[in-house]
Write a protein that binds this DNA or RNA. Structure first.
Lengths: 209, 209
DNA sequence: GTCTATAAACTGATAGAC
DNA sequence: GTCTATCAGTTTATAGAC
């Protein structure tokens, strides 16, 4: 509960280098092998310490899981809010949603181990861990629901599909890009342009008068 | 290699009731706990037999995995081909893609344990299993690429995004619906209508002259 | 076809030296 | 802070009875 912070230290508690290293390697291993399949010995090996030493930094395997999951979603939330809230007050909802898409993709693709681990293993973790993590997820879903419902009220969003369906479809599709996006096939900015175009206007051509 | 088939049996080899039961329960457990985290004791318990008995039907845990993965994708392939190929010869590519979307969603959502297991654990399985399964995946991807490239050649598909990006985005988005689709919130046919509308025309409104 | 029994190895977590 | 050593439990797979 009470963690000692060295006087004058600018960092928050819980931020030693090895601690961060353990979280990073855990995220990478959870992503590629799953949560239950990843052993603390593997995590310790990758982090350059022995298995027993992990328990100086974390109380249990599940505590590591919790931090990895939270970090994965927090990175995305921060990137989205930063971009959406730096828009001018008279921005259209289309502009705000576009900013949100770019932020979400940036977070997903630039911290792939944390975000992919989150996407891949959330459905496989103990219910206790799920329950705690659900609060953050719900808050993020609410943020997007507000964007979509405001756009709907302004007549910018299609009305023949539920906003919940739109949110789940779009966020799910954006999340999954971390599983196939290949930076070697083009710039991140061009990727964002393509995805935003598809999300906004669909995959078909439309005759314009 | 040579499996005894009772004379007059209409079924192919490898189709005893308990064998099918083991595959079904394995898919359900792989889906919810991951591959490595699922023990053969759990699978056996769920299937109503003892752990040792599994080895009469399967040579190893990885053989079960292979069959679960193949079945998950084969269900979807069959549903897609059936719908696309029953269309009249003069059908538009829009019609064909719509039929493909409906088939893909039907397969995904009506055999959720096999399809969700496939989506969730593919990134977490041993490379040996991945390598064998990749052949079927590639064939299915090619099928969709042909649909999209034909639509592109006919001017029905948008030209400012790569067909590979379109395929990966759309299939990924459709795959993920199995993680959030709720049959209690509306009929399957209405769900297909909403998803197809979003994929074809996007989430925004478009002024039509 | 299914069972019991067991082998050989691995698991999360703890205790205590340094 | 990190180490070694260890506990108690679990794992896949095999052998052989029925």
């Amino acid at each position: 509960m009470t963690t000692k912070i060295p006087p004058g230290a600018a960092t928050s508690d819980a931020e030693s280098a090895t601690r961060e290293r353990v979280l990073l390697e855990a995220a990478r291993l959870f992503r590629h092998h799953g949560y239950a399949a990843t052993t603390l010995r593997e995590v310790a090996d990758a982090a350059g310490i022995k298995a027993g030493s992990i328990y100086y930094h974390f109380a249990s395997k599940e505590e590591i899981l919790g931090e990895v999951l939270d970090k994965g979603i927090q990175i995305v939330i921060d990137a989205v809010r930063q971009r959406v809230e730096s828009l001018p007050a008279d921005a259209t909802w289309r502009d705000r949603i576009a900013a949100g898409i770019e932020g979400h993709l940036w977070g997903m693709l630039h911290h792939g181990d944390f975000t992919s681990a989150n996407v891949r293993i959330y459905g496989q973790i103990p219910t206790s861990a799920k329950k705690r993590h659900r609060v953050v997820r719900r808050a993020y879903a609410d943020y997007w629901d507000r964007l979509f419902e405001s756009a709907l009220a302004r007549g910018e969003l299609r009305q023949d599909a539920g906003t919940a369906v739109i949110r789940l479809f779009v966020i799910g599709a954006l999340n999954w890009t971390v599983e196939w996006y290949d930076p070697k096939r083009g710039s991140f900015q061009d990727f964002v342009r393509q995805i935003t175009a598809i999300v906004f206007d669909g995959i078909l051509t439309h005759d314009k008068a």
